[in-house]
Amino acid sequence: MMPAPILRIENISKRYGKKDVLQGASLEVNKGDLKILIGPSGAGKSTLLQCINFLVKPDEGRIWLDEQEVHYAHKRDLYAYRQKVGMIFQDFNLFDHLNALENVRIGMVKVKGMGKAEAGERAVMELERVGLGDHMQQYPAQLSGGQKQRVSIARALAMDPKVLLLDEPTSALDPELIGEVHAVIRDLGNNGMTMIMATHQIGFARSLASEIIFMEDGRILERGTPDKIFNHAENARTRGFCSKITELYGER
């Protein structure tokens, strides 16, 4: 028997005014999976990720984490759930008034109620894990984009999430900084972290994804192994998008 999925999303819909941004997206994620969302901008990838931890409240749909349904209208349930589902943003969103160490520590102290010293030790560990042991005292404005994104990954990891959501984590980065962030994500994947990631980095997606999900107009049009999506896609739109993006971002 297959193990139960760690995260199950059923029929998530979101409408802004008259525009349907998400139309019944469903997803099952098993432990250790790396699901990659691809699709043109406006496809609903970001909205889907934000709906998964309720930063955007879906109009319809249900979500289960570890077979427990998330009742997000219950504030307490919602806050507990969000601790278990980390989020990485395209533009990092580090807290501007805190240095790298404090950025990683504050969630543990304020949300989990850990002592400052204990949380500090953990923060140091997480920052060293993402290769930023030498930058702990620096403020966001003093860090490069790649460093900022690695701090934000450390900040999410410090909360011991079961699932990590990554919303185009390298889209705001210079090409030469993308590698350092990819290396961290690859490392996480190898260590069994469950992740859902939206990205345009096809080479990265191809080499690491357990499943690629192609979205357009708020719908999941096709899903499958990287090989299936990139080489034998059934849907003409999927083929069109993949060939265009492969041309743009190269094979690698």
């Binding site: 806050y79 969103n93 969630g107 304020k110 949300v111 900040r155 999410a156």
Partner: peptide
Amino acid sequence: KRGQMLAAQSLGFHKVQMIFSIILPQAIR
């Protein structure tokens, strides 16, 4: 910026915690 709030919420901050430990320290400056 809204991103500061999204980041705090995604870590599990509730509203009052977010306002007093993330938003106000920046706003007061």
